[in-house]
Amino acid sequence: MTITETSQIGIAILSLNGTLDALSAPDFRNNRSVIDPEKSVVIDMENLDFIDSSGIGAIVGASRQKRQPVGGIILSCMNDRVRKVFEITNAQKLFHIFDDTIAAVDFAATRQSARA
């Protein structure tokens, strides 16, 4: 899996490409923006082809590290395959999920400014 990181209005956007499983989960977990409890992160999943419970665990774990667990990690552009794994584990309940990355960034920015 490759992680491409960009930033917009102070929000980190991590674009995941490939497979998020037990093998690639540590890369995600150790990402600087993911570790930073103050940083709001949008995870763009448009090119994420496959996720398993280890991948879900990594994202859930990351959200728990955030000062604001529900708003700290925001998910976008999930394909049906990834969405189904979220639903099986009920993990979708823990996140705000957008079908558009820009909309997710706007949402995160609004939340961040409200917090400030």
């Binding site: 529900v70 552009c77 049906d80 969405r83 979220f86 639903e87 979708q92 309940k93 996140f95 705000h96 999920i97 957008f98 079908d99 558009d100 820009i102 909309a103 706007d106 949402f107």
Partner: peptide
């Protein structure tokens, strides 16, 4: 198909489904 939060308003739903 998609997911919402129990407390999402109509406005939030439209935002979460902007591409659609």
């Amino acid at each position: 198909y998609g997911s919402i939060h129990p407390d999402d308003t109509i406005h939030a739903m439209l935002g979460k489904n902007r591409k659609f």
